[in-house]
């Protein structure tokens, strides 16, 4: 008879919660942390812009147009209407970040809902949702955003709506594929075998396993959304002058590119910095969340 030997009790490190361990990993990831700090600085500066003692971003001056970077009183120079670049860049972050984040958030909610429904219900519902989203996916995202914005008319609200429509299909697709994967795993059967209802299974087991990957994907869309939003403004479909917004600033400063190339490049640099920051954070998040399994 084989004795029922007990496994030798080991000293077990106290178990941390899942999110606590994700946080720990993120803190150890230097690249992600640097990006987080940069992004936070830009976001906080944009939010608290009125309290930073900046110049009025709307007031121009005919005699002080296109001053170079480092001019006393104008740290980053002035634009083609003599407005303070530093102030405009910081105030511009308000709109640009708003256009970057809101459509992605909307699309995250709508897309996850559609994708999880499609993945869990399957059959005809799945076909209806996924084929419709395929229609949208067939268009290049820039073209689609421009087309919808053009149809709806210029304006911030309309560009947010059009960007949301652009991002729903890819998020729905990711949500659907992750849900189908998770749904076929044994623990869903195991939950069912221990008496959980379909609703409990979706709410408790599917949602919590699916939201992570969708969230990571959505963060990677923030930069795309910012660039598309800037693109729409550049084309005159988004923000209207004199509102400071990075894409629009890029457009209006285009004429000054031979006179002050560095100043003309500044809004582009901001877009670049923020979008690459969001991308790297999204990468870091993905590897940090991939601890289990």
């Amino acid at each position: 008879m084989v004795s029922l030997a007990e496994p030798v009790p080991l000293i077990i490190a106290p178990s941390r919660g899942y999110w606590a361990s994700v946080g720990q990993r993120l803190l150890r990831d230097k690249v992600t942390m640097v990006c987080v700090v940069i992004l936070l600085t830009i976001i906080l500066a944009a939010i608290f812009a009125p309290y930073l003692g900046l110049a009025d971003p709307y007031r121009g001056s005919i005699i002080r147009r296109l001053r170079p970077i480092g001019t006393p009183g104008y740290l980053l120079g002035t634009d083609e209407q003599g407005r303070d670049m530093l102030a405009r860049l910081i105030y511009g972050g308000r709109l640009s970040l708003f256009i970057g984040l809101l459509p992605v958030f909307n699309a995250f909610v709508i897309g996850s809902l559609l994708g999880i429904t499609a993945g869990f219900v399957g059959g005809k519902v799945n076909a209806a949702i996924m084929r419709t989203s395929d229609v949208f996916l067939a268009f290049p995202s820039v073209l689609l955003a421009v087309a919808i914005s053009g149809a709806l008319g210029a304006g911030i609200l309309n560009s947010i709506v059009s960007l949301t429509i652009v991002f729903v299909p890819p998020i729905a697709r990711i949500a659907e594929s992750v849900t189908t994967q998770v749904r076929s795993l044994d623990f869903v059967d195991a939950a069912r075998a221990s008496g959980a209802s379909s609703w409990t299974i979706i709410r408790v087991h599917i949602l919590n396993n699916v939201l992570g990957p969708i969230f990571v994907y959505a963060t990677s869309l923030i930069s795309v959304s910012m660039i598309l939003g800037a693109g729409l403004s550049f084309l005159g479909l988004g923000t209207k002058p004199p509102e400071p917004e990075w894409g629009l600033m890029l457009n209006t400063l285009r004429t000054a590119i031979y006179v002050q190339p560095w100043i003309a490049a500044l809004p582009g640099a901001m877009i670049f910095m923020v979008s690459i920051g969001f991308n790297l954070v999204s990468d870091g998040l993905r590897s940090a969340m991939d601890v289990r399994r």
């Binding site: 044994d186 939950a191 075998a193 221990s194 008496g195 087991h205 919590n208 396993n209 289990r292």
Partner: peptide
């Protein structure tokens, strides 16, 4: 019926699966 079936599962009869890693939900303790 679905409701009675859910009561039956786990209470009257329950099941152990082959692959314990896959049969336990990774995001819960």
């Amino acid at each position: 019926e679905p409701e009675a079936l859910a009561d039956f599962r786990g209470k009257t009869a329950s099941m152990i699966f082959q692959e314990p890693m896959l049969a336990l939900d990774p995001v819960y303790t």
